[in-house]
Amino acid sequence: MTGGRTGWARVPAPVRDAGLVAVAVGDAWLAVSDSSWPEAGLAALACAALALRRYVPLVVVLLTVPATVVADLVVAPLAALFALAERRHDRRLLGACAVLMAAASAAPWPWHDPDSRDRTWTLIQFAYTLAGTAAPVLFGQLVQARRDLSRRLAEIEEAREHERALHAQAVLARERAQLAREMHDVVSHQVSLIAVQAGALQVGAKDTDAREAARTIRSLSVATLDELRNMVTLLRASGGRATELTPQPTLADIRKLVATSGIDAELTGVLPDTVSTPAQRAIYRTVQEALTNVRKHAPGAGATVELWCEGDDVGVTVTNGRPTRPSLPLPGSRQGLVGLRERAEILHGTFSCGPTPDGGYGVSVRIPAQPA
């Protein structure tokens, strides 16, 4: 349907028009060679009008009708009907033009009052002529349908290309959102721990060089966290929910995470090994983010990490007490808790957080142990 053009279609339009007019003139010459000048003039007008069939096909048909009445033309009326049918969708108009052309061809000329035998023959000739005029109309409609179908197929292909491009953009957006979450959960966790430890060393060190080195480390860590915050914000601006990336930590890594958190944290509870891998990752990230926030916003406070299982659900609750000293002015991306809520929703779970009655803070997540 959308292949290369045929040999006839590659011929320039003026050359085709000239060829068609020449054939029509030859046909008309045979039909009006013994006729009067008015009849020859009408035939010549019909032949010349074919050059305009692409622009005003209906006018060309109407100009051909008088010549068809006075002469037995073949090429001009059929070419005019084909041009009209190729460019118009109105089937009533096409049918009326075919009937009009057949009537003009079957009408007796010169006009006289025919007897009953002549009238019967005229009707028979009209029926045969109507079949002849219907042929170019049907063929023109077929050509038009083929052209419309080719155009429609091209539009469908273009739409599919656009859909594929949108799908690729959506995949890229999800990957960016996932990358942003992983950057916040993994990289900022480590950098914030460096900043906290450097701040503690800066306060407790007695050697001037050690304090200066600790100050430099802390400053660089704070600047790095600030850059990470900007990068995460940019990635999330074009991202959405995403699939998990590998490799990822599991429940087996939580004990080490608590032990190396740099705060006084206690781990209680045990979860079964049958918990799905996505649920294990979500629980690990929840503990990681909660302990990071304790270090940043509640220095000196202890924390409790409680793993629990209720029916078909598993979860973790991390609570911390009131801070015992002022927190360091570390920048926050404000995306950590958002990411935890997104993880829980992806796994058809729930996430909650908020202050506790004793002035601390609590974070809890509940997730089905197995995918729904």
Rank of each mutant, 00 (worst) to 15 (best):
T2Q: 14
G4E: 14
T6F: 04
P14E: 07
R16M: 07
W29T: 15
W29C: 13
A31L: 09
A31Q: 11
V32N: 09
A44L: 15
A44E: 03
A46W: 07
A49L: 07
L52G: 09
L52P: 00
P66G: 06
P66Q: 06
A71Y: 11
D72L: 14
D72F: 12
L73W: 10
A76Q: 08
L78N: 13
L81M: 11
E86A: 15
R87L: 13
R92E: 11
L93A: 10
L93V: 15
L94H: 14
A98G: 09
V99D: 03
A104N: 03
P110D: 04
H112V: 12
S116C: 00
R119C: 13
T120L: 14
F126T: 10
Y128M: 11
L130K: 07
T133Y: 06
A135T: 14
L138D: 11
A145C: 13
R146F: 13
R152K: 14
L153I: 14
A154M: 12
R160C: 08
E163F: 07
R164K: 11
A165N: 09
A165T: 13
A168T: 12
A177V: 02
L179D: 09
E182G: 04
M183D: 09
M183Y: 11
S188T: 14
Q190K: 08
S192K: 02
L193N: 03
V196S: 00
Q197L: 05
A200R: 09
L201Q: 03
A205H: 01
K206I: 03
E212Y: 01
A214Q: 01
I217R: 06
A223V: 08
T224F: 06
D226S: 15
R229C: 12
T233Y: 11
A242E: 02
L245N: 04
P247Y: 03
D253E: 15
T260V: 02
L267C: 08
V275Q: 01
P278A: 00
A279S: 09
A282R: 05
T286W: 01
V287P: 00
A290P: 02
N293G: 04
K296Q: 08
G302W: 02
T304R: 12
T304Y: 00
T304H: 09
E306C: 06
E310P: 00
V314Y: 05
T317G: 03
T319S: 08
N320D: 06
P323M: 01
S327E: 05
L337C: 00
I346D: 10
L347R: 01
P355N: 00
D358Q: 04
G360K: 00
R366L: 05
P368N: 02
Q370V: 07
Q370R: 09
